[in-house]
């Protein structure tokens, strides 16, 4: 085996891949969140539709889309390989175990949280991404050009209570996943020092609340504004 494949098939090498792809996916979350904030603009969806058209057609974004799929793929695959290996280490479970006394829940349930996020992601992709790319939404003219009216697809979805619920639950799972994952990734990369580790941990906690809360605010906003208050 070459030194390279030996490194990345070792326990630490695989952890490293999960960490690097995890941080990359965090950067995607930021871009996705900032872009989607245009839903709140109150211009009937004009800027959101122009933005989604740009995201669907710009060659750089399309290339990054492939990198993103690879990022998700590696993150999930490596985590699965590690989880299977880790589960096999203890063939006989403890009859009585109290892990809650020595560690927090999210850190022990990253696989469960990740699976919830994956289920959410599949629903989410089917509903928006798939429709935007391969479906035929209504066209809407903005400043003389016709755009796919993705804004209406989004807003109408967020008028369904069960859809809003799926979104909020997905974001809660994401929050807990990030709460452990963000600072843990730096630890796995070996970046641990008394000078900056406390800051990473604080920022990780902040990130794990603000990003999911930002995403969850979108379905909640449209549901409360258009359904609850009307």
């Amino acid at each position: 085996m070459s030194w390279f494949s030996k490194t990345f098939s070792s326990s630490i090498g695989r952890k490293l891949l999960v960490a690097v792809t995890g941080l990359f996916l965090c950067s995607f979350l930021v871009v996705h969140l900032v872009g989607n904030l245009q839903l709140f603009k109150g211009d009937g969806g004009a800027s959101f539709n122009i933005y989604s058209h740009f995201m669907a057609t710009n060659p750089l974004i399309r290339t990054m889309e492939i990198v993103l799929v690879l990022g998700f793929g590696f993150h999930i695959y490596e985590a699965l390989v590690l989880t299977r290996r880790n589960k096999s280490v203890r063939p006989v479970a403890y009859a009585y175990n109290r892990p809650q006394d020595n560690s927090n829940w999210s850190s022990r349930n990253m696989g469960l949280l990740g699976t919830v996020i994956l289920v959410f992601l599949i629903i989410h992709l089917y509903n928006f991404f798939w429709r935007a790319r391969f479906g035929e939404p209504n066209m809407i003219p903005i400043e003389g050009t016709d755009y796919d009216d993705l804004y209406s697809v989004v807003v109408q979805s967020f008028h369904l209570w069960w859809y809003v619920l799926i979104y909020v639950l997905g974001q809660i799972a994401l929050g807990y996943h990030l709460y452990h994952g963000f600072s843990s990734a730096f630890h796995t990369l070996g970046l641990n020092h008394k000078k900056y580790t406390p800051a990473i941990q604080k920022f990780g906690a902040f990130f794990s609340i603000v990003v999911p809360a930002g995403f969850a605010s979108m379905p909640l906003y449209f549901f409360i504004k258009d359904v609850v208050l009307s």
Partner: peptide, 27 residues
């Protein structure tokens, strides 16, 4: 198994070996 930075090891260690050592091992 492979570490997932849960921290129960360091919490249960009778001599208080710190989790920082695992970051150093990774590095």
């Amino acid at each position: 198994g492979a570490c997932t930075n849960i921290g129960s090891c360091a919490a249960e260690c009778p001599v208080g070996i710190s989790l920082e050592n695992i970051a150093m091992l990774n590095r």
